[in-house]
């Protein structure tokens, strides 16, 4: 197996607040292999965006990485000084944000934004950069790119703007792209096109991708592996087939059973009562225990780590042979 492009180990993110330190992420670990797409799912507030922000080194202060490590192609990046990390952003890690209406600077033409990004990271003459900018606009499917390169963002539709954002994220040819809900803000009719584009470009360029989304359809179609997050931790991670078709963690099972109509954020889970706890009120033991239909004693005492289940790894005591209770048929075979 090739060494991973991205390797996150025991990542812990804290927010010092007036009423004590909130732990937004804890013990988050995963790898992304070259060219692989890792889907990240979970209810609102699970920590998906926070994970992405930590990887690109842009956590909003006072949020900070309090533990663990992040490696890009083996190089530790979470401890780099700002300016060294800046040179990695855009060049080796591209980012795609949620709302294309607000992610482009309204006062600069799209061409200028592409050119400045490329010239920051690659040594290109003005002419070369402009040629490439036009090339990128063509590549992301903007018609009449040679003319549109001098247009301002407001002259594009939402879908077209997200194409521009994708071009901006990819234009310095990063090896990893962090895409945080890249289609949530778009018209339903356009979402599939944007995802198809992203998938095609990632395949062509061999770019690895962390794709945060609420859309299980997108996950099933695009991701190679899936991480399910709950209350700042990874609840389950594994190959997309296994996680979607035969989830092992009771939370994943609830999530998959409640696949929401297209892009709607998952607010309530089918068959699972209650809501995800606030960061300040995460229960001891397994964070999911107040809502879990399979909860037993040990869940309230000890916090489970990721445990091999055969197909995936799940943070659930049902899969620890030492537990007094084992996974029911339903979960074991999906």
């Amino acid at each position: 197996m090739p060494p991973p492009v991205l390797s996150v180990r025991g990542l812990r993110v804290e927010f010092p607040t007036r009423r004590g330190v909130l732990t937004a992420l804890s013990d988050v670990s995963f790898d992304i292999a070259p060219g692989e797409v890792l889907g990240v799912v979970g209810e609102s507030g699970a920590g998906k965006s926070m994970t992405g922000a930590a990887i690109i080194g842009l956590l909003e202060p006072p949020g900070r990485i309090a533990g663990g490590e992040i490696r890009l192609q083996g190089e530790r990046i979470d401890t780099l000084p700002y300016d060294r990390m800046r040179r990695i952003r855009g060049k080796r890690i591209g980012a795609i944000f949620q709302d294309p209406l607000t992610t482009l600077n309204p006062l600069y033409t799209v061409g200028r934004q592409l050119i400045e990004t490329m010239q920051t990271h690659l040594s290109l003459s003005d002419r070369e950069a402009r040629q490439r900018a036009i090339g990128w606009l063509e590549m992301v499917g903007i018609p009449a790119a040679a003319q549109r390169v001098d247009s301002y963002p407001h002259e594009f539709s939402g879908g077209m703007r997200q194409r521009v954002v994708i071009a901006l994220a990819l234009c310095a040819e990063p090896i990893l792209v962090v895409a945080d809900e890249p289609t949530t803000a778009l018209d339903v009719s356009i979402q599939a096109q944007i995802i198809a584009l992203l998938k095609r470009l990632a395949r062509e360029k061999g770019t690895a991708m962390m794709l945060v989304t609420h859309d299980m359809g997108v996950i099933a179609e695009t991701a190679d592996r899936v991480a399910v997050m709950y209350a700042g931790r990874i609840a389950e991670i594994g190959p997309v087939r296994a996680v979607v078709k035969a989830p092992k963690h009771p939370y994943s099972a609830g999530l998959m059973a409640s696949i929401p109509p297209l892009d709607r954020k998952v607010a309530h889970l089918a068959g699972i009562e209650g809501a995800m706890p606030r960061l300040s009120a995460i229960p001891p033991g397994c964070a999911f225990n107040p809502r879990c239909p399979h909860v037993f004693d040990r869940c309230r005492r000890e916090r489970p780590e990721l445990i091999e289940t055969g197909t995936t790894r799940a943070a659930c005591w049902l899969y620890d042979p030492a537990s007094e209770r084992q996974a029911p048929e339903l979960l074991r075979h999906g």
Binding site: G90, T117, L168
Partner: peptide, 13 residues
């Protein structure tokens, strides 16, 4: 604003 965050994510100085 988002476009400043995005500019940072693009690695601009």
């Amino acid at each position: 604003t988002d476009y400043i965050k995005f500019a940072r994510a693009r690695g601009l100085s």
